[in-house]
Nucleic acid binder design. Structure first.
Lengths: 341, 341
DNA sequence: CTGAAAGCGCTAACAG
DNA sequence: CTGTTAGCGCTTTCAG
């Protein structure tokens, strides 16, 4: 591995001068600069960032902690963050926790050891203390939360209006004539899940429709729970005419349940979900969805993190950025055939 | 940020001793070890990996270059790699190139500057020289290619049997009675795409069916090209009865084309594709697919890379690992209604 | 404009 | 077992 010293020797200058041409930190005579650049080319030199990082106390690396890249919501989020970060030559180190707190803690530790400049995190559910996050902030590590708010933590967060988005969607279902609307929620340990449930309740309440307990089922945001709870709901004596599912993967499980039970969507039951699915335009049923701007969340979050890192926003109070959702009305919620009689 | 020195002071030992308890590099008396561990806890100390990396010339970071995390094939690949890497405490730095060679080159440069221990790369199409890869290897950087073989490069690669997988799929189509089978290929600059085309030709040849030029269309592995070429094929005077699409995203485009043209799948045209889609069990049509073990490719590739990094396999010739594909027969290729007469 | 030199935080001899 | 010390490759004063 060639070093700055070898470049200096080959170019016949001091290492300070080489450093100056690389970083543009001070003026260098044309003759010397050219010699240095030539040497860099010839020796295929790549300045050692780890040495540089050690010296300047900045690594140019950002950590990103998500639950599972395999969940279709996250790739967009990651891509948004990466695109924002890359503009400033930052690297993104991603990690999956599968929503396990232990992994999240461990990853924080690893990330801190590697001295990332900041971290973007979609927090795992179930931690009301978030000591590892507190500790990291105390140590001066900039952190921006995405999508989910950690309970009882004053921290930068970019998310969406879960309550409003859900309410709007339920209102759409009501406008379609549905009165018997069930919901599969996420884990209520997550504020995100509670907010969506709240949007559901608000919309029903405003329409003067009582909330029925047996039509509220708590899932865990994974496909399997959607499948299981979908089956349960379908076997209720009085089946709901519409079902709102609190995220996309659970909806996939619900679709399997529908198929197995021989219940057709949208003809026999209307369906709508939180989170859009990138491929829904290509398959059937086309699913009505409260679309989150996942790419924008990642992008905006990364931008905010960069600001915090640059200390441009020194001492500013934590920002709560809420991006708008978009209700995408598709066939799954509009093709219901009203039961006659 | 607390340093090893502060820990040493607080514990009343030398920094060498602290280093020894952290890394287990030498025996330390119980009393001292406990004092050190206590200090580490109290000060929330995280050993500075960048300083460590500089010293030991190993960063514990691996780069991964893919074309687009947003393409459903890649999340699995990344996850497999991450899981394999994490077992040895390695970090994964991912990058998207959007298949642009310029970005790939740039990323290689960035990765080398950061002194990653190795890189996993799904090469971008169109580079017959791959100078940046050659240079990196010359400098001693272990590299393992995934999925796509860079032309004219002797290098470790883990991929699948594209020819055999495709042939098997076409044979299935033939067995269903189809004689008029079209194909949408990937960019022929990619060996992967050529191999799949080859599998198609071989299967037809073996069945004594001539290959018709107008039924071979070259796409670019993106949805839009599938849409466009799908439309073209549908408007051929003699429409094929079956269509093989060389990857999943293009198939999504084809499905849109079908819907717009009012051609129903599988009733009016059979469909099969290379690459499985994770969600196809939840939607219609359920798509017949040559499934690649994406997770396994990532996992195996990372394992191989780790071996190369450890130098356990010093001087061994490049490995070509081919993982098996699995033909998943679903309704899109079995529900065709033979034209009578 | 240029070179010399201190030191970022850690590991790995080495001497005791 | 323990402490001391020389760098790893770079940036950044500070003189000149």
């Amino acid at each position: 591995m060639t070093t700055i010293k070898e470049i200096a020797q080959r170019a016949g200058v001091s290492i300070g001068t080489v450093s100056n041409v690389i970083n543009g930190t001070a003026a260098v005579s044309d003759r010397r600069r050219e010699r240095v650049q030539a040497a860099i080319q010839e020796l295929d030199y790549h300045p050692n960032q780890v040495a540089r990082s050690l010296k300047i106390r900045r690594t140019g690396m950002v950590g990103m902690i998500i639950s599972d890249i395999t969940n279709p919501f996250f790739p967009q989020l990651v891509r948004g963050a990466e695109d924002a970060l890359l503009k400033q030559q930052n690297l993104l180190i991603t990690f999956n926790t599968d929503d396990r707190l232990e992994r999240e803690r461990h990853i924080f530790s690893v990330l801190r050891a590697h001295r990332v400049d900041g971290v973007l995190v979609v927090v795992a559910p179930g931690d009301s203390q978030a000591v590892h996050i507190q500790d990291a902030r105390k140590a001066g590590l900039p952190i921006v939360c995405l999508d989910r708010v950690p309970p009882g933590l004053e921290i930068d967060i970019v998310s969406v209006d879960n309550v409003g988005g859900t309410r709007q969607c339920i209102e759409h279902l009501l406008a379609q004539g549905h009165r018997e609307i069930a919901i599969i929620t996420g884990p209520v340990a997550l504020e995100t899940a509670r907010e969506r449930l709240q949007g559901y309740s608000e919309a029903l309440g405003q329409a003067g429709i009582p909330v029925r307990k047996e039509w509220i089922r708590e899932g865990d945001f994974r496909a399997d729970s959607g499948y299981r709870l979908g089956k349960e709901l379908l076997s209720t004596p009085t089946r709901p005419t519409a079902l709102f599912v609190s995220n996309n993967t659970m909806t996939l499980g619900v679709l399997r349940a529908l198929e197995e039970c021989g219940v057709r969507c949208p003809e026999e039951i209307a369906l709508a979900m939180f989170d859009d699915l990138p491929l829904t335009d290509s398959f059937h049923p086309h699913l009505t969805a409260v679309a989150q701007p996942a790419y924008a969340i990642g992008y905006r979050g990364a931008e905010l993190l960069l600001e915090r890192i640059e200390k441009k926003s020194e001492g500013q109070p934590p920002l709560k950025i809420q991006l708008p959702t978009e209700l995408k009305i598709r066939e799954s919620s509009t093709g219901y055939l009203r039961r006659s009689g």
